[in-house]
């Protein structure tokens, strides 16, 4: 998937290897070994990063987050997609587009 494509609910997401992650005061801070760039994922972003250690669909991800956090699934989905698109632009995740079957 390219960074300009819209992520759909059945698309599968997994994080890429090669990042050093550390917890700092409840937030996750990360360094990409490949690019040398540093990132702050924040607390919610850090939880998403944990969840995508194993491949799962966007829909599954939203369901888990909506169960853990005080957020409506629809609004959660919009914000998670925006976050994942940024991760994709930074080449930090892989997304497998669903075949639609």
């Amino acid at each position: 998937m390219t960074a300009s494509t819209q992520i759909n609910t059945n698309d599968r997401v997994i994080r890429k290897e090669g990042n050093l992650v550390s917890d700092m005061g409840g937030e996750k801070v990360m360094m990409s070994i490949t690019s040398g760039k540093y990132y702050n994922l924040g607390s919610t972003g850090g939880r998403i990063w944990e969840l995508i250690a194993e491949e799962q669909t966007l829909d599954q991800l939203i369901q888990v987050l909506a169960a853990e956090y005080d957020i409506e699934p629809e609004r959660c989905g919009e914000q998670v997609v925006s976050f994942l698109e940024h991760l994709l632009r930074e080449d930090l995740i892989d997304i497998t587009v669903s075949s639609g079957v």
Binding site: Y38, Y39, N40, L41, T44, F83, E90
Partner: peptide, 15 residues
């Protein structure tokens, strides 16, 4: 028991 939601944001840090 649900945690407070904060919109996830990826902050690129300038070292």
């Amino acid at each position: 028991e649900k945690k407070e939601w904060q919109a996830p944001v990826l902050e690129v840090l300038d070292v």
